[in-house]
Every structure is written in structure tokens, then in C-alpha cells.
Amino acid sequence: MKTPQQHPNPVIRYTLFIIGWISFVLGMIGLLLPVVPTTPFLLLSAACFLRSSPRFYVWLTEHRWWGRYIRYYLDGQGIPRRVKFLIIGMLWITILTSALLIVKIHWLSVMMICAAAVISIYIAKQPEPKLDTD
């Protein structure tokens, strides 16, 4: 895991801090709304806090619920198998529900399903941590 180091320029530091909190809030919204992704926003938040607020970076990466998964990804260890199945399962449930029951534009439904397929392949190809105790 990288060592947090504040950016020397205060304008950039405060901008990163604000972006970090906005992405964190969007990530939390993603926990409630299946259409909004959680992980990319939490990773962006961690990246912003890495250069703007060491305190919040440590808080985010050491959090009891999602800190371990952020650390796995940032350290290049990947995603635990159980989490991969959960992510891909929820992705397909929400995409198929939306594409087949809600969206009435055929080409848009096809695009949604194609995007889900690409995302599923990306997630499946991610490495798995050596010691997966989930």
C-alpha cells in the first residue's frame, strides 16, 4: 500500500479532497442504487485522499467493511473470488432486469448487455488474493 503524501499545492490538495469526498458519497449511493457503481468511486476516493488527506486515506483503506478490498486492489492483489461472484451476479441481475423489463429501446438494451459482458470479463480476469479468508 502506498504511503499518503499531501500535494504541496494547496489548491490542488483541496480540489483532490473535495473530489475524494464527492466520489465517496457517490460510492455510498452505489451501495443503495444498483445502477451506480461503488468500487470505482471508492478507488477514486482513495486515490484523491492519498495526495490530499493522509488521515482520510488511512480511514478509507482501514475501514472494517470495504478497506480490505480497497487495499487488495491497490496492492495489485485483485479481488477475492467470493466478491467476484457477488459483483458479477448483482451486475447481471440489475442489467437484465433493466434491459428486459424497463428499457423499451432495443439497441440500448443490447448495449447494456454488451457492457455487462465486458465488465464481467474484466472482473473475472482480475487476480485473486493469495490468502482469501472470506
Results as ranks from 00 to 15, higher is better:
79 I>L: 11
129 P>A: 08
23 S>I: 04
26 L>Y: 01
60 L>E: 03
103 V>C: 07
7 H>T: 07
37 P>H: 06
18 I>V: 15
123 I>L: 12
58 V>I: 15
65 W>F: 15
97 T>F: 11
63 H>Q: 08
87 I>T: 13
95 I>G: 00
95 I>E: 00
43 L>C: 07
97 T>G: 15
87 I>K: 02
45 S>C: 09
51 R>V: 10
115 A>M: 11
15 T>Y: 10
24 F>S: 05
44 L>C: 09
45 S>H: 05
69 Y>A: 05
130 K>W: 06
68 R>L: 12
11 V>H: 07
8 P>A: 14
28 M>W: 08
51 R>Y: 12
60 L>W: 02
47 A>R: 04
129 P>D: 09
35 V>F: 10
59 W>V: 08
56 F>I: 10
18 I>H: 01
113 I>F: 00
60 L>K: 00
22 I>R: 03
77 Q>M: 12
93 I>V: 15
130 K>N: 11
26 L>D: 04
2 K>A: 13
101 L>E: 10
49 F>R: 04
80 P>Q: 06
12 I>P: 01
37 P>L: 05
123 I>G: 05
29 I>H: 03
95 I>P: 00
88 I>K: 01
26 L>F: 08
96 L>I: 12
41 F>N: 11
116 A>H: 01
133 T>L: 13
54 P>M: 07
46 A>I: 01
62 E>I: 11
82 R>L: 11
105 I>C: 01
80 P>H: 07
134 D>P: 03
40 P>G: 04
128 E>M: 11
60 L>R: 01
61 T>A: 04
63 H>A: 02
10 P>S: 08
14 Y>W: 12
38 T>A: 03
2 K>H: 12
6 Q>A: 15
64 R>F: 14
24 F>E: 05
103 V>M: 06
101 L>M: 12
37 P>Q: 06
14 Y>R: 14
26 L>A: 14
128 E>H: 01
28 M>E: 13
93 I>P: 02
88 I>S: 01
119 I>N: 06
122 Y>I: 15
20 G>S: 07
55 R>Y: 11
1 M>N: 04
52 S>E: 04
63 H>F: 02
7 H>D: 12
104 K>H: 12
78 G>I: 03
113 I>K: 00
6 Q>C: 12
98 S>N: 14
89 G>I: 11
77 Q>V: 06
50 L>D: 02
52 S>I: 07
28 M>S: 07
70 I>W: 00
127 P>H: 09
62 E>S: 12
93 I>T: 13
7 H>L: 08
82 R>M: 10
46 A>P: 01
109 S>H: 02
108 L>C: 02
123 I>A: 10
23 S>L: 07
4 P>A: 06
23 S>E: 05
49 F>P: 00
98 S>T: 14
37 P>T: 08
115 A>Q: 08
10 P>L: 07
47 A>F: 06
40 P>D: 09
69 Y>F: 13
102 I>E: 08
125 K>S: 13
110 V>S: 03
45 S>L: 06
115 A>D: 09
37 P>Y: 02
38 T>P: 00
107 W>I: 09
77 Q>A: 10
